[in-house]
Amino acid sequence: MGLSIDALHAQPTTSTIKIRTKDVDVFYDNRPAIKGVSLDLYKNEIVAFIGPSGCGKSTFLRTLNRMNDTIPGCRVEGGVYLDGEDIYDDKIDVVMLRARVGMVFQKPNPFPKSIYENVAYGPKIHGLARGRSDLNDIVEESLLRAGLWDEVKDRLNARATGLSGGQQQRLCIARAIAVSPEVILMDEPCSALDPIATARIEELIDELSRQFTIVMVTHSMQQAARVSDRVAYFHMGELIEINATDKVFTQPDNQLTEAYITGRFG
């Protein structure tokens, strides 16, 4: 049922590997949730994880910046390497890791602070700004790149919780990119949004991929088809297939993938 060696190397070898996972297993209280997943994620690509509910795609996403460390009873085995460095090594500073591998969650979660303070928080705690002027520049640039600046520039001191759902999610993206990450993880970033806000986020994802590697979990196969370069299909904790998006949706290698995308189960 697992992934063929050929499929693992479907991406051209000239691409730069940003994250490599090797034989990753994840357990919740000794119950296996992820089984032997190996894959490479490349610089400046968008990869979408799809699969039925409970298949392990969000669990696997959280292994990429050690968010599973926060879940009692969760254990990760195998290797996860960022630029060749084992992120599960005891010497790794997890706070710095999560600055390099940022995360945007399913439900927008702005801090109960001003719009400005939401974006400025990360640069301040990581010492990325030498003064208020630097901080102002980082906040403006992050909001510009998140497509939110024009909507909020005259009310930066207003509470972030007063923004619409779509605006809050773009603010959370601005907050993530303000610390200059290398990878952005997105766990169903549009599932709580209306179609117009979803379209804005999808446009933003495409723009951000010019600078960042983006890995997203989505329940929407249409969204995966629209925004991703490659698609990974998960089933019962296993990575069944990862291939170019067009191939997965028109000529998948595995019958399980085909059954899912044609609606025969899931």
Rank of each mutant, 00 (worst) to 15 (best):
W149C: 04
M186Q: 03
N136K: 14
G266N: 05
A197Q: 08
R66G: 11
R159D: 09
E182F: 06
I201T: 09
S38N: 10
Q251S: 12
E45N: 02
L82G: 12
G237H: 13
G162Y: 01
T59P: 03
A244Q: 13
Y28S: 08
I34H: 02
I87Y: 10
V248Q: 00
I19N: 06
Y233G: 08
I201W: 06
K153N: 13
L82Y: 14
G165F: 00
R31N: 10
R75E: 15
L239Q: 02
D90W: 02
E182Q: 14
F27P: 02
L204H: 12
E203Y: 00
I46S: 04
P181N: 04
T245E: 02
L148E: 05
D137M: 14
G78A: 11
E182W: 04
M96D: 15
R100I: 03
P123R: 07
G266L: 09
C55Y: 03
S133C: 10
Q255H: 10
A199K: 14
G36N: 15
H126G: 10
V104C: 01
G131N: 15
A176F: 02
S191E: 10
D206F: 07
V152P: 06
L41G: 03
E188F: 00
C190T: 15
E188G: 05
I261G: 07
G56S: 08
G127L: 01
D246G: 14
V47P: 00
K247V: 14
A225W: 13
I71M: 14
H126L: 11
Q255I: 03
